[in-house]
């Protein structure tokens, strides 16, 4: 890593700080290493949700493959991901061979992880020789807050976090979040929560007048909403594969 700009001007000031962070990371779990078979499916998925694929970091999970991929196959997979605007940052593979694969492809090795990422982060960090300059902030990603109206034709996407909107969302506008969506004005456009597949995501709004709402791909159109909860304050959540609206 080039460190050119981090010139140490005074020998006793610390130039860096380690901080635990909880970045949203998605796994791309592959059931084949055949790029020719994979390419059209992945490309079709990318075309459906282009905003999602715009430089989204992913961990390639190869543990479901029947046979361990060769280095050449892995490199082809990485190339394919990059062509579709995904950014492979790590690898989950057979722990026996993963170290070598990661070494060559310069990906981080996630193969030895037994526990969810959260537990790893909670583990005490090695104490730095010098105390950190500032106290650690709680590092859950802050929700994206919008205070001006989201107008027809505009798109707002809260990547890796919740979206809070304190203004109307107009018909023809699209609001999306990986987490929950809160709308404190009338919701007249489209709202998509959990776009990365989080089925726990919910949509809360003061007045439901949406064209469409969707959670993790399960959706309801305004036709259904008209019958259920039109102009009501409601929350929408997934129960199994059913998208329910509940009065607030």
């Amino acid at each position: 890593m080039p460190m050119g700009h981090a010139v140490n001007q005074e020998s006793n000031t610390c130039c860096f700080q380690f901080k635990s962070t909880r970045a949203a990371l998605n796994e791309l779990i592959l059931s084949t290493s055949d790029t020719e078979q994979l390419q059209p499916q992945l490309a079709a998925h990318a075309a459906k949700v282009p905003m999602l694929f715009s430089n989204m970091p992913v961990v390639l999970n190869l543990q479901q493959l029947t046979s361990a991929p060769t280095l050449v196959e892995l490199q082809a997979l990485i190339r394919l991901c990059r062509e579709l605007a995904l950014v492979p940052v790590g690898l989950k593979a057979d722990p026996e061979t993963s170290a070598e694969l990661c070494n060559v492809t310069q990906l981080a090795d996630f193969s030895h992880q037994r526990r969810p990422v959260r537990d790893m982060e909670a583990a005490p960090e090695p104490v730095a020789a010098e105390p950190p300059a500032a106290p650690e902030q709680p590092s859950a990603p802050a929700a994206k807050v919008i205070t001006t109206p989201v107008r027809s034709g505009q798109q707002v996407y809260a990547r890796g976090t919740d979206l809070v909107i304190l203004a109307p969302v107009s018909a023809g506008a699209e609001v999306m979040a990986d987490g929950h969506i809160h709308v404190y004005g009338p919701l007249r456009g489209r709202a998509m929560a959990g776009v990365n597949g989080d089925t726990e995501a919910r949509i809360f709004c003061q007045s439901m007048e949406a064209e469409l709402i969707s959670i993790a791909g399960y959706f309801k159109t305004s036709e259904d909403l008209h019958a259920e909860c039109w102009q009501q304050p409601i929350q929408a959540l997934l129960r199994g594969s059913r998208l329910d609206t509940v009065s607030l």
Binding site: T148, P149, V150, R151, S152, G153, Q154, S170, A171, G172, A173
Partner: peptide
């Protein structure tokens, strides 16, 4: 009204 809404979005962005 919808087109006006759109132009308001353009104005503020």
């Amino acid at each position: 009204v919808r087109d006006s809404d759109r132009i308001l979005g353009v104005l503020q962005s």
